[in-house]
């Protein structure tokens, strides 16, 4: 399946947030560890709400977590 033209820095942000695990991030935003892993790997595009929740956990604006990489 084609990857969406969206990349993210969740892995880096988790590392900078005290090496937060995927499970911990998932618990804080109501997603499973597998879904967080799928988002990080670009295998799943989260809903807008989930994207905002992820950004809020790291205290960043949405565009610093997710980036449009298409044309």
């Amino acid at each position: 399946m084609a990857r969406p033209p969206i990349s993210n820095d969740i892995r880096t942000l988790r590392f900078l947030a005290g090496e937060m695990t995927q499970a911990e991030l998932g618990e804080r935003i109501g997603l499973t560890r597998q879904t967080v892993a799928a988002i990080e790997a670009g295998k799943y595009s989260p809903s807008l709400e989930a994207a905002f929740r992820i950004a809020r956990v790291f205290g960043k604006p949405l565009e610093e977590v997710f980036r449009w990489t298409g044309d």
Partner: peptide, 11 residues
Amino acid sequence: REAQARPDERD
């Protein structure tokens, strides 16, 4: 734990 968790938006 996973079995008890409710399905999330991806599921």
